[in-house]
Computed example of a mutant assay.
Amino acid sequence: MPTETATEATTGRGDAQRVRWALVTGASGDIGAAVATTLAAQGLAVWVHANRNAARADAVVASIEAAGGQARPIVFDVADGAACAAAVAQMLAVAPIQVLVNNAGVHDDAVMPGMRAEQWQRVIDVNLNGFFNVTQPLLLPMLRTRWGRIVNVTSVAGQAGNRGQVNYAAAKGGLHAATKALALEVASRGVTVNAVAPGIIATAMSADTFDAARIKQLVPVQRAGQAQEVADLVAFLASERAGYITAQTLAINGGMWAA
Rank of each mutant, 00 (worst) to 15 (best):
G12T: 05
T209A: 10
F210G: 02
Q90M: 15
T7K: 15
N53C: 10
G81Y: 00
I74E: 04
A83T: 00
S63T: 14
V101Q: 01
T10C: 05
A33F: 05
D232T: 14
V151N: 10
N133W: 07
I150V: 15
D109L: 00
E65I: 12
T3Y: 13
H49I: 03
M91V: 04
G161W: 04
A87I: 12
P141T: 09
W147G: 06
Q17P: 01
G69L: 05
V101D: 06
T179S: 07
Q70C: 08
C84D: 12
A207V: 14
V234N: 11
T203I: 00
N152T: 10
H176T: 12
E240N: 14
G225V: 12
D211T: 05
D125G: 04
A79E: 06
P198F: 07
A95V: 14
N162W: 01
R72C: 01
N53P: 07
R52T: 09
D80S: 00
M1C: 12
S188I: 10
L138E: 04
N127S: 11
D15H: 02
V221G: 01
G130V: 08
T246F: 08
A195M: 06
A238F: 02
R241T: 03
A207Q: 10
P137W: 00
H49P: 04
T154L: 00
A67Q: 14
Q226P: 04
V126N: 05
V106N: 02
A62F: 09
G243T: 10
M142T: 02
A104S: 12
D30Q: 06
V61A: 08
I124E: 11
E4F: 15
W147F: 04
E118C: 09
T11S: 06
R72N: 06
A231K: 07
D211P: 13
R144N: 12
A79G: 08
Q248Y: 10
W257M: 11
R149N: 12
K172F: 00
A41Q: 13
I74Y: 05
F76M: 01
T145G: 00
A224E: 10
A41C: 09
T11G: 01
F131N: 08
A50F: 09
